[in-house]
């Protein structure tokens, strides 16, 4: 049994490395358009994985992704022409990390949908305050952002995605990962068995936001100009949540699959038929919630169990505390 699992893990690892090797080669072998396409897809993969890092195991639905993404974008707008690119991107991550510590610390007591709507409001609050400051205090709206080549952006995001995969993988298998799942499973019992639920929740929230901030900072360099409306777009809160739900939170591949499928669809449709995309997105969401409680991954596992008689039905449902 142990050998079999190892063999399975090795084959997964080989597949992942092959995909990564292909992605690394993409800028050399394909058209510029492909690089842009893959860059945008990877961006959603990064956001969705980050979201799932916190919300997957703990069951808290965070809708603050856009706030952390926007914090990254603004960091790039202010520091992009002062600092070298890697440092600037790192600053974006740190800014979001700090913002998440604050939001996390004040939302500790909120559960379930209260947490969701609070985080949603935090995006709007930041957006409106920033807008006001720009108009009345600074006297000008928005800022230009330093431009970086598409292939550089592509590689940075690829690195972020790899970091996320590695972090998620090791976190899941660690003591810390057990603590996170126990919070999602029964928070009160977790606290009474010695888990520091406050620290685990806030730190994981901040860690996931760190990656969102990194992504925002590097993606900003492709935007040329940003303002509060562009940077704090609520869609960046909705999309990762829905993509991860669609893919399934049972394992690490769920969010990746959800993000790849939807962002590819988005790339095809967004320029010519943006509202067809929204319509499909909405419909698929409704159907997923209704008929695929564990997402695509859950469906795949069910099929596997049905036809192969395997014993891999460990997917857990979406939970809300």
């Amino acid at each position: 049994m142990k050998l079999k699992t190892d063999a399975k893990n090795v084959s997964y690892l080989v597949i992942i490395i092959l995909i990564l090797a292909f992605l690394v080669a993409v800028p050399f072998i394909s058209k510029p358009y492909t690089v842009i396409l893959l860059k945008n897809i990877l961006m959603f993969v990064a956001l969705t994985l980050s979201w799932a890092l916190f919300s997957g195991p703990t069951g808290y639905i965070s809708l603050a992704t856009a706030a952390f993404y926007g914090a990254g974008i603004y960091t790039a707008a202010y520091l992009g022409d002062v600092l070298p690119l890697p440092v600037m991107v790192l600053c974006g991550g740190v800014a979001s990390f700090l913002l998440a510590l604050i939001i996390g610390a004040i939302t500790l007591r909120l559960r379930g949908i209260y947490f969701a709507i609070f985080t949603l409001s935090s995006v709007e609050l930041i957006k409106h305050v920033l807008h006001w400051i720009e108009i009345t205090v600074l006297g000008k709206r928005g800022r230009p952002v330093v431009k970086v080549s598409d292939s550089t952006v592509f590689y940075v995001i690829l690195i972020i995605v790899v970091l996320l995969l590695v972090t998620t993988y090791f976190l899941k298998r660690s003591r810390y990962g057990m603590a996170m799942s126990s919070i999602g499973s029964c928070e009160e019992a977790a606290a009474h068995i010695g888990v520091n639920v406050v620290r685990v929740k806030v730190f994981t929230f901040a860690l996931s936001s760190f990656f969102i901030g990194l992504t925002g900072a590097i993606m900003a360099t492709g935007l040329i100009y940003i303002d509060s409306q562009i940077a704090f777009d609520l869609n960046y809160s909705f999309f990762p949540t829905l993509m991860a739900t669609f893919g399934g939170l049972g394992n690490i591949f769920g969010p990746v699959i959800g993000a790849v499928l939807f962002s590819y669809l988005r790339e095809i449709l967004i320029t010519k038929f943006p509202y067809v995309y929204m319509l499909i997105f909405g419909l698929v969401m409704i159907l997923t919630i209704l008929y695929l409680p564990n997402g695509i991954i859950g469906l795949a596992q069910t099929i596997k169990v049905k036809f192969l008689g395997g014993k891999d039905a460990t997917a857990t449902g979406r939970k809300v505390n």
């Binding site: 069951g59 639905i61 379930g112 949908i113 969701a116 909705f238 949540t241 829905l242 739900t245 509202y275 067809v276 929204m278 319509l279 997105f281 909405g282 419909l283 698929v284 969401m285 409704i286 997923t288 919630i289 209704l290 409680p293 449902g317 979406r318 939970k319 809300v320």
Partner: peptide, 19 residues
């Protein structure tokens, strides 16, 4: 779980109606 899921489904509904 119904509260959380119904909120997510309402998001789907939001996208459908808006588009």
């Amino acid at each position: 779980a119904f509260e959380g899921n119904s909120m997510l489904m309402a998001f789907g509904l939001l996208f459908v109606i808006q588009s």
